[in-house]
Every structure is written in C-alpha cells, then in structure tokens.
C-alpha cells in the first residue's frame, strides 16, 4: 500500500516545471505561523507532516504547497482542542465579509 505523499518512483512522464512563483503574503504567514507553533511546542513538524499525509488524495494532489500546510495545521489544532472547526468556519466567513474576497 502506498499513501499519497509517498511519491518516490511513481511513474510519471511529466517534466519538472522550473518556474518559480512569487510568494503571496498568506504563504509567508502560513509558513511562519507553523514555525511559531512549533517553537512554542504546540505543533511539531512531525505532526505537521502527518496531518499533510492524512489529506484526501485528490486535494493533496491539487493543493498548492502551503494549502497543504494550512489543511494540516487545521487537522492538528482541532484534534488537540486548540481550535474548533466551527470557529475556523465562522472566522473564515468573517474574513470573507470583512475583506470581500471570494473563494
């Protein structure tokens, strides 16, 4: 059995795309947020990896890199009772209202 993150040797003819994207601020924030949580002993990098590995296959494969981090952070923080899914839902909606983005 192979899980979605365990990519070594998977057959693919896809070339390696060497174009670099410019980091969005939310990506820097997400990377650093997880770094802060790690430094404070709230969520270690192994938990972060495990959370990524538990993602749904389709989402793992289509998600951008830091979207995986976000998904994992949510998994671990909810599991540990630091945050609840409901309050994340509510706050996400509040941000939507406050800043007027869609997506």
């Amino acid at each position: 059995m192979t899980t979605v993150h365990d990519r070594g040797g998977w057959p693919t003819d896809e070339p390696i795309d060497r174009e670099e994207h410019e980091w969005a601020d939310w990506e820097r924030q997400t990377r650093s947020l997880i770094g802060v949580l790690d430094a404070k002993g709230i969520m270690n990098v192994d938990q972060m990896r495990r959370g990524i590995e538990s993602m749904d296959t389709a989402e793992y494969e289509s998600a951008a890199y830091f979207e995986r981090w976000s998904a994992s952070m949510e998994t671990v923080l909810v599991e540990q009772g630091v945050l609840t899914t409901e309050e994340i839902d509510e706050r996400t909606q509040a941000l939507r209202d406050r800043w007027g983005y869609t997506g």
């Binding site: 270690n44 192994d46 938990q47 990896r49 495990r50 540990q80």
Partner: peptide, 11 residues
C-alpha cells in the same frame, strides 16, 4: 523517534 512525535509523543 518521529513516528511517535507525529502523534503527540516526545520521541
């Protein structure tokens, strides 16, 4: 041990 740290242990 990252295998236990990943699940909240101290490794």
């Amino acid at each position: 041990n990252s295998e236990t740290r990943a699940h909240g242990g101290d490794g």
